[in-house]
Design a protein around this nucleic acid. Structure first.
Lengths: 249, 249
DNA sequence: GCCTTGATTACGTCTGATTTATGGGCCTAG
DNA sequence: CTAGGCCCATAAATCAGACGTAATCAAGGC
């Protein structure tokens, strides 16, 4: 009488898919952000109940969440329509992940990189004013750890230290919205690494600039922190530009 | 109590689908973002069913949406816990609106203003490279309209032209994430106006800078567009600083 | 003292019925 | 033939109740 009596559960206990909601949400999110449905396409609850083999409650809750992300819009008597990409909440972490998994990943990475170039210098400036002494000291230590990881060729250690460094600058900017971008920067760096848009042996100049940012923040020199971070994000931007401008525009 | 009258709600304005879902979502969102529940507080579905006088489906769908915003986290056998503000999706338009309606509105406005100061100059730079000729021309026209509205003392016209100007610069930056901030800038300007943090007779220098930005974008002078927009956002920041630093820090 | 085990609990999922509002067809009036 | 209002089929919105599931906590055994 219950679900799946005759059809064995598709996900054994090993899978994290024990959450139907998460599974269907991810399935639909990937499909929409990946262009699987053209804007204006209409979905129906009953249709999704069949296609995803889950109950109406699961489908409805998923559609509510997608609607709150701006991906779909439910209308009585019509159905649930796919909204155009311009209406999506492009700052929602899930949407960013789905887009990074789609064909548009380079566009998404470019957007993230340009956003970082705008935000991180300002965050460094504010961190120089607002970070506590202990937090500033930890930033210097992180820059040193980054340096060491690069010298010893420890790639995973380098990536995680790099992520942590930028996360903390954003966090200590004292601005909740800058801080809200910290997971996004982590996604960006991971994505850059995953798609091999990163130089394999870290640039010496980048290491120097990380150290400069940390030192300037500790010495409360906001302008220098901003300048160094600008140079850093500019270098990142230049390194990645080849990825989306293959012909060198 | 909340809506005052027991008569029909004054406006079922746009056919915004559900009544109950939107009502309960807003009620809980305002309560959480307004500090009505301390982080760690546990909510229960059955309790909310009683308190809000709606069915389980409505409550569950609302909690799913709140969870996707990072405001709550459901755990089996425990209940649904309020998450700390650091975990909230502070870029979700709903969360921003709830925070602007709370006691933290000045903190939220400061964050928005600092974010604008970081993003809009870069957006102006990119718009100078990427905006179409027609879009650039419309920007110049909007700056002129802004000027005219200021001269004739048309406050509502000034506000709407101001919002539209900044929206379009973000939109024509060619970066989807910058463009995604356009509604947020609208909220920021509206909030600034609503809480009287805006000079009543617009500053002459601000008008000049708007015109400069538009002209620089039309002439494809990215650096000048960025410089002018930096001056503009800096001036906005200075004007509002009195609001959150009353004693002149 | 640590691990196992079982009862308890609140979320998660499923199902069926009912209500609501809305887009389009149809009809009437100008 | 067009404009405006009424009717109805439709799909979402809501309600109500049941059962499954996993995580917690405490009792009991090693």
């Amino acid at each position: 009488m219950l679900y799946g009596m005759d059809t064995h559960p598709p996900a054994p206990p090993t899978g994290a898919a024990s959450r139907l909601h998460a599974r269907v949400l991810d399935e639909l999110g990937v499909a929409i952000c990946g262009g699987g449905f053209a804007p204006g396409t209409v979905l129906y609850v009953d249709e999704l109940v069949e296609r995803c083999a889950v109950s109406r409650s699961v489908v409805r809750e998923v559609l509510r969440v997608l609607a709150s992300m701006g991906l779909v819009e439910a209308r009585r008597r019509v159905g649930t329509r796919i909204r155009p990409p311009a209406d999506w909440n492009v700052f929602d972490p899930q949407v960013i992940r789905w887009r990074l998994a789609s064909d548009e990943r380079l566009v998404q990475l470019r957007s993230l990189t340009e956003l970082r170039a705008a935000v991180e210098p300002q965050a460094a400036l504010l961190a120089a004013r607002r970070a506590s002494a202990a937090d500033a000291a930890e930033l210097v230590a992180l820059a040193a750890k980054l340096w060491a990881a690069a010298e010893s060729g420890d790639e995973p250690g380098f990536l995680s230290a790099d992520i942590e460094f930028h996360r903390r600058v954003l966090l200590h900017s004292g601005n909740e919205m800058f801080a809200g971008l910290r997971e996004l920067v982590a996604e960006s760096l991971t994505g850059r690494h995953h798609y091999h848009l990163m130089p394999h042996h870290p640039d010496q100049r980048a290491l120097t600039l990380h150290a400069d940012v940390a030192q300037a923040i500790q010495r409360r020199d906001g302008e220098r922190a901003r300048t160094a971070m600008t140079a850093l994000t500019q270098q990142i931007h230049d390194e990645m530009k080849d990825g989306w401008e293959p012909s060198g525009g």
